[in-house]
């Protein structure tokens, strides 16, 4: 208690109690996060199926992955393409609609709710089923296309289109990012726009010199969270396209699932999960490093 008195001058017993309140989290962190995290690193250096005890094999899982596994690079490529389609598409819609929605108007909250709805349902099996039925050959998407006199499209038969169809499912759920942009837009001081108007700036000009720079911190946050999620996408690839055609939608999450839980290659799948983790970390580090070139954290005083 004496030692505590030195550290926190005003402290009393109440401060130690904080640790007690936080203790469920500490236990959960150690047991359900830290332990599995470190264990998967260890397993990634082992040959381990559920039937026999694990055997340390050094780097051979990683070597196999990069030199022999015929599905590793296709999975990596599909995942990167998916991230490159889905994340910018989602953020672009989220930003565009947020800017249009950011006015004082009746019923705005109705629209906001409506646009948010896909984010609520999007990850469910029901919506995966819906997507699969919509994009099949005689599905509703093709009925619209043929209705306009164009030939029907084989969405799940052509590699690039299959990837686009599952990316669209992700883009459809732009509402959650949009809500954050809206919150950011509300914080931009009105007088910046007034000053811009007096200076004769066009709306477009004001968007690029006022709105966009002030939203970059939120854009950054959305970018990180959505990319981390997109790297791990599983449900859409598993239920809608099942990885096909020609592995064009064989996302990393799907490969991980199959190796671990269908082929019981726990050691190898752990190595895969670490490559996924390192890819996400690499992206995150690059994003954080690049921040100083494009995000804007000062108040808007410079304009």
């Amino acid at each position: 208690m004496n030692k505590l008195g030195i550290v926190f001058r005003n402290s009393d017993n109440r401060q130690w109690i904080g640790l007690l309140y936080v203790s469920p989290f500490i236990i959960g962190l150690l047991v359900f996060k830290m332990y599995p995290f470190l264990a998967s690193l260890y397993y990634s250096f082992t040959d381990f199926s559920l039937l026999k005890p694990e055997k340390f094999v050094g780097l051979s899982n990683y070597i196999y992955m990069f030199t022999k596994d015929p599905l590793f690079f296709p999975a990596l490529k599909a995942t990167l393409l998916y991230v490159l389609f889905a994340v910018p598409g989602k953020l672009a819609f989220a930003l565009l609609i947020a800017v249009i929605l950011n006015v004082n108007m009746k019923f705005i909250s109705v629209y906001r709710t409506l646009y948010y709805l896909p984010s609520i349902l999007g990850g469910s099996v029901a919506i995966a089923i819906l997507w699969r039925s919509m994009f099949t050959k005689d599905g509703v998407v093709n009925q619209f296309i043929t209705g306009m006199g164009l030939p029907a499209i084989d969405w799940f038969g052509i590699p690039s289109l299959a990837l686009i169809s599952i990316s669209l499912l992700s883009i459809w759920q732009f509402g959650s990012s949009m809500v954050l942009f809206l919150a950011g837009l509300k914080q931009i001081p009105k007088d910046l726009y007034e000053a811009g108007t007096i200076d004769g700036a066009s709306k477009l000009r004001m968007f690029f010199s006022i709105t966009f720079p002030l939203l970059t911190p939120i854009l950054f946050f959305n970018l990180i969270m959505q990319t981390v999620n997109a790297f791990q996408e599983f449900t859409a690839a598993f239920l809608i396209t099942n990885g096909g055609p020609l592995n064009s939608t064989y996302l990393f999450g799907l490969k991980l699932y199959q190796d671990a839980f269908q082929f019981a290659k726990m050691g190898y799948a752990s190595a895969l999960s670490w490559i996924l983790f390192l890819s996400i970390m690499l992206f995150t580090v690059i994003a954080f490093k690049s921040q100083k070139y494009w995000t804007h954290y000062e108040d808007g005083g410079k304009f």
Partner: peptide
């Protein structure tokens, strides 16, 4: 509350916000 190790655990909490489920799923299963 202010307690020793608070900053450490707070940082760890923020870090796990970005910890992918995929990387812990196999040991969790086991």
């Amino acid at each position: 509350f202010r307690f020793p190790t608070k900053n450490l655990f707070f940082s760890l909490m923020i870090a796990t916000l970005m910890l992918p489920n995929a990387v812990i799923i196999i040991p969790s299963y086991l």
